[in-house]
Design a protein around this nucleic acid. Structure first.
Length: 493
DNA sequence: GTTGAGCGTT
């Protein structure tokens, strides 16, 4: 096994990090020793000692053409940090610092899953790699004095807290989760500020791609791509200002134009987007929704639509939050998933109601998020819902729909307006989520105009359905629970 | 002497 010499800053202490078998260095290996690192650079002797960056793709650093060599690689940290440091030094203006303080508030953190043997000293020592630790305690049985397997700790600075919250931790041989305790759930507002909604994602955009791309702007602490794929993602930054600065922007990642906008609170049936949409859909909208992130498609999916509920039940608080684009509770009824989907497709093509009862009253609508979950028979898994079969049928159905609708119908609707988050979230197609962005909804439902972003229908037609599930791999070989991090959120963060 | 999702004897 070969090692690479790395130091945090030039002429700093050197730590040797092991390469993988293929000669790459894992970002995770690097950040284990240098928390918060986003890249690597080195002095290139061939160009008079100019700094060169190291290629980073999907969490792996690739060696320069000449190999890693014996040179020392230097960590690169996101500019936010430097910016913040200089902020702290230069700036004492009250208003801004006050605001920053309110956003950057530390709280006690609970550490779950500690080994029985871990002491408070161990705990403190572990987290000191991330910053000053003001307090660390392991909860013990008062009688026996034995650890209960969890504890609390507190950082002196918020960056450390955010960094620690964003990952799982190997402490004394066990993967542990660090969370904000239930008793102090006040950090949600700040969470929101740090999180952005990334719309118009395509399925080939992996979490790593997003992380890598957005790391350019600042440290990314979390990337969440809802599964099943729904054409959007959430990216959380360490610095809320970075997050906010990106809102409203369009970017191109791997050839895909994505749109960044504000994330919005979850589990609120009256979110701002929702209200707007509610109006847009108009009274009499049979969607029956509270309006959150819904797009009435003018016709319902059945409750059996695979995306009603979907896999949600396994994640307690993952409620669809009304954001389930297929929670179009208005009618539908218990039909086969395929039929429902076909109807949805037809509707999304502007064909009008296709006879799945979309105009029937009924369905209570999923305003709270539990509706979708509860209305689905517990025995119906995704498989039972024939989702797997439904996906390959997608193109066939589109073709069929095309035959009925004619291309003419498409043209107008292809003009996918620049959509706000709500719309992006509301539109979706179970067969293939690319449809929503291209076919969109009937134009009268579409919100304020915008540029046509792309017409990826042919692109979509040619696509194969890969179900690569690169994320969520449990890095540990310990038989512990699966990684659940990141599931605390649902459609909206 | 065991355990493994949770939420803090101040």
């Amino acid at each position: 096994m070969s090692f690479i010499q790395v130091s945090e800053e030039e002429n700093d202490e050197i730590i040797e990090l092991p390469c993988e078998d293929d000669g790459t260095l894992l970002l995770s290996t690097l950040s284990a020793q240098f928390p918060g690192t986003s890249g690597l650079k080195y002095r290139n002797p061939d160009s008079g000692g100019a700094l060169r960056g190291v290629r980073l793709v999907k969490g792996r650093f690739y060696p320069p053409d000449a190999g890693w060599g014996n040179q020392v690689y230097i960590c690169v940290f996101p500019k936010v940090e430097n910016k913040r440091k200089s902020d702290e030094q230069l700036e004492n203006s009250t208003a801004k610092t006050k605001r920053m303080e309110s956003i950057h508030k530390c709280s006690d953190l609970i550490v779950l899953g500690l080994p029985w043997k871990t002491t408070e000293q161990d705990l403190k020592q572990y987290f000191e790699a991330y910053g000053e630790v003001l307090m660390a305690q392991v909860k013990k049985d008062p009688k026996t004095g034995k650890s209960k397997g969890f504890g609390f700790m507190r950082f002196g600075n918020y960056e450390s807290q955010v960094r620690v919250l964003s990952k799982r931790h190997m402490i004394d041989g066990r993967w542990c989760d660090v969370k904000i305790p239930n008793s102090k759930q006040d950090g949600q507002a700040t969470e929101l500020n740090r999180k952005v909604f990334v719309g118009r994602c395509t399925e080939d955009l992996a979490a790593d791609d997003l992380r890598e791309f957005f790391s350019k702007f600042g440290e990314v602490t979390d990337v969440f791509i809802p599964k099943p794929f729904r054409a959007f993602a959430f990216v959380t930054f360490m610095d809320p200002e970075v997050a906010q600065s990106l809102c409203g922007e369009d970017h191109i990642i791997k050839g895909t134009s994505i749109h960044v906008s504000n994330a919005m609170p979850k589990n609120e049936s009256g979110g701002r987007h929702g209200r707007i949409l509610g109006r847009m859909n108009g009274p009499g909208n049979h969607s029956g929704m509270g309006g959150v992130q819904m797009r009435g498609f003018g016709g319902g999916l059945g409750q059996n639509s695979p995306f009603v509920g979907g896999q949600m039940p396994q994640h307690g608080n993952m409620g669809m939050g009304g954001g389930g684009m297929w929670n179009q509770g208005g009618g539908g009824g218990n039909r086969s998933a395929n039929l429902s989907n076909l109807a949805a497709l037809g509707n999304s093509l502007g064909l009008g109601t296709m006879g799945t009862g979309g105009n029937q009253p009924g369905g209570q609508g999923n305003t709270g998020g539990q509706g979708g979950v509860n209305t689905i028979p517990p025995t119906l898994s995704m498989d039972a819902l024939n989702l797997g079969a439904a996906i390959p049928l997608g193109s066939a159905m589109v073709a069929a729909a095309l035959g009925q609708a004619g291309l003419g119908l498409f043209r107008g609707n292809f003009q996918s307006a620049t959509m706000g988050q709500a719309e992006n979230q509301g539109i979706g197609n179970p067969q293939n989520p690319h449809i929503p962005n291209t076919t969109s909804a009937p134009s009268h439902v579409t919100a304020g105009g915008g540029n046509a972003q792309r017409s990826g229908f042919l692109e979509w037609m040619n696509q194969t359905q890969g179900s690569g599930d690169a994320s969520n791999s449990n890095p540990g070989q310990w038989p512990q629970r699966e990684v659940k991090q990141g599931f605390g959120m649902s459609v909206s963060p």
